[in-house]
Simulated scan of single mutants.
Amino acid sequence: MPSDSSSDKIKLAEEFTQAERDAVYKAIATRRDVRDQFLDVPLPDDLIGRLLGAAHAAPSVGFMQPWNFIVIRDVQMRQAAFEAFSRANEEAAAMFAPERRDLYRSLKLEGIRKAPVSICVTCDPQRAGPVVLGRTHNPRMDSYSTVCAIQNLWLAARAEGVGVGWVSIFRDDDVRSLLGIPERVEVVAWLCLGYVESLYTEPELAVKGWRQRLSLDELIFEERWSEP
Rank of each mutant, 00 (worst) to 15 (best):
R35G: 03
P59Q: 09
Q76V: 10
Q37G: 14
Y195D: 06
S177C: 11
L133I: 13
G209L: 01
S5D: 13
T17L: 02
F82H: 12
A157E: 04
S86G: 08
A157R: 09
A149I: 00
N89Q: 11
L47M: 06
R158W: 10
R78K: 15
D172K: 07
P125Q: 05
R127K: 04
I150W: 06
G53W: 10
V187Y: 07
E15I: 01
Y104E: 00
I48C: 05
S145P: 09
A92R: 15
Y104V: 00
V162L: 00
L205D: 06
I72N: 03
A149K: 01
L216F: 06
N138V: 10
A19Y: 05
P228S: 10
D4G: 15
S118G: 08
M95T: 13
V147L: 07
C123D: 12
T201Y: 05
E218W: 07
V131R: 14
S6L: 11
Y195G: 05
W225P: 11
R105L: 15
V121Y: 14
E186P: 08
D102Q: 13
S177V: 14
W210G: 05
F96D: 07
S3K: 08
S60Y: 09
L109E: 01
S198F: 13
L193T: 04
A19I: 05
R224N: 14
R113G: 13
Q151E: 15
I70V: 07
E183A: 14
A189M: 02
T122G: 08
R171I: 02
G49T: 01
C148H: 08
E15P: 09
D102C: 02
W190G: 03
E15C: 05
S6P: 10
F63N: 10
V132N: 11
R213S: 13
V117E: 06
K208E: 03
D4S: 15
I72P: 04
A81L: 12
E197Y: 05
L191G: 09
E83G: 05
L178W: 03
H137F: 15
A81V: 02
Y195H: 15
T17V: 00
V24G: 07
S106H: 08
H137R: 15
C192V: 01
L107Y: 04
D4T: 11
K11C: 02
I112N: 01
L51Q: 11
W225R: 12
N89A: 14
S106M: 08
W210T: 01
L216R: 03
S145C: 09
A92C: 14
A80R: 15
A57L: 02
L214F: 08
A97L: 11
W166H: 00
E15N: 08
G180K: 03
E110V: 07
Q79P: 03
R21S: 15
D102K: 12
V207Q: 13
A189W: 07
T146R: 03
E218F: 06
S168V: 01
E223H: 01
P130M: 04
V207F: 10
A58V: 10
R100Q: 11
Y104F: 01
R158P: 09
S143Y: 12
L193I: 02
S177W: 12
D102V: 07
R32C: 00
I48L: 13
P44I: 01
L47D: 01
C192N: 14
E186F: 14
V41P: 13
F221N: 14
E91T: 15
